[in-house]
Design a protein around this nucleic acid. Structure first.
Lengths: 141, 141
DNA sequence: TGGATATAATTGATATATCAAATAATTACC
DNA sequence: GGTAATTATTTGATATATCAATTATATCCA
C-alpha cells in the first residue's frame, strides 16, 4: 500500500528531479522564463502553424492553462498573437524577435540539461525505458 | 531539439496518464477527493507521526502546498490537526473517522489502479524501469 | 438557407505549485 | 541565561491545473 514503494513514485520523482534541475540551469542563464514556456516557444519554432489546442495536446495541458500561459508569454514579449486569417476562432501565434533570442540563448542549456540527466544510461536502456513507459501509457488510456 | 522525441516527454506522459486514470477511477467511487489527498491520508495511516515537512518531502511538494492541502483536508473533515504536545512548532495530524472510512473505501480502487497500469509488464521490466529512473534521479541531484 | 452541431478559445471558480518573506518555537553555544 | 542560528509552519504574490460554463465562429445537413 505504501506509495513510496511503487514505480509510480519513482516516475514522479524522476520527472520532478529533472524539471527542477532544468529550471535551475535555465534560471542561471536567464531568469524569468520557465521550462514550459520554453517548450511552447520550441514547439512553435519547429511548427509555426500550431494552434493553442495543438499545444495543449502536446504538452498535456488544459486549454485554459494554455490560454493563460500564452497571455503571459505575449505580455512578457516572447510571443505575438493575432487572429488567424483563415479561421477567426483561432489565433496565429508567432515568436517575437525577443522570443527568438531567448530560444537561441537557451538552446545549448536545454540540450546540456537533457544530456546531463541521461549520463551513464546506455541507448539500449533508454529504449527499454521508453518501451515500458509506453505500456503504462497504453494501459491507462 | 523536439521535446516530443525525448524520454522525458514519455516519462511525463506516463505519469500524467496514470494520474488521470487513477483520478477517474477514484471519482467513480467517491467524488470530492484527489489522488494527492489520498496519498496524504495513506502516508499518515502508515506512519501517524509524520509532520507536514515529512509529507512535503515524501510527496515532492512545497511546504506551502502541504499547508494548504492539509487545511482543505481538515475543512473537508478527513483530517484533524492539533498542536504537537512535544514541539509547539509542529502539528499533530490525525485521520478522522470519516477519513478512515474514505481510505478503507478507496483502498481496493487504489490497488486495482496500480495493477491495471502495470498490466503486461514483467517484474524484471519493473526492476529495469526503477533502475534507470534512479540513474536519472541521481544525475539531477 | 437556416438551425443543429461541432470546434477554438476564453472566463470563472477553486486548488495546487513555487518563491520569498514572515512567525513562532526550539536548539546551540558562549 | 541570553542571544544567535535553526527549524516548522504560515502568508502573500503570482502562475499553473482542472472543471464547468460561455462566447464566437465554423461546419453539417435536411
Amino acid at each position: 500500500m505504501d506509495p513510496q514503494q511503487t514505480v509510480f513514485y519513482r516516475i514522479e520523482k524522476a520527472i520532478k528531479s529533472y524539471r527542477q534541475f532544468a529550471q535551475q540551469q535555465i534560471a542561471a542563464v536567464q531568469s524569468g522564463i520557465t521550462v514550459d514556456q520554453l517548450l511552447i516557444l520550441g514547439l512553435l519554432d519547429a511548427e509555426p502553424d500550431l494552434a493553442q489546442k495543438d499545444l495543449a495536446k502536446m504538452l498535456f495541458k488544459d486549454h485554459a492553462s494554455i490560454t493563460r500561459m500564452i497571455e503571459l508569454l505575449v505580455k512578457r514579449g516572447h510571443l505575438l498573437r493575432s487572429v488567424h486569417p483563415e479561421d477567426r476562432r483561432k489565433f496565429k501565434l508567432a515568436i517575437s524577435t525577443q522570443g527568438q533570442q531567448t530560444l537561441a540563448q537557451l538552446k545549448p542549456t536545454i540540450l546540456r540539461n537533457r544530456a546531463h540527466a541521461l549520463q551513464g544510461i546506455a541507448p539500449a536502456e533508454l529504449q527499454q525505458l521508453t518501451h515500458i513507459l509506453n505500456k503504462i501509457i497504453n494501459n491507462c488510456d
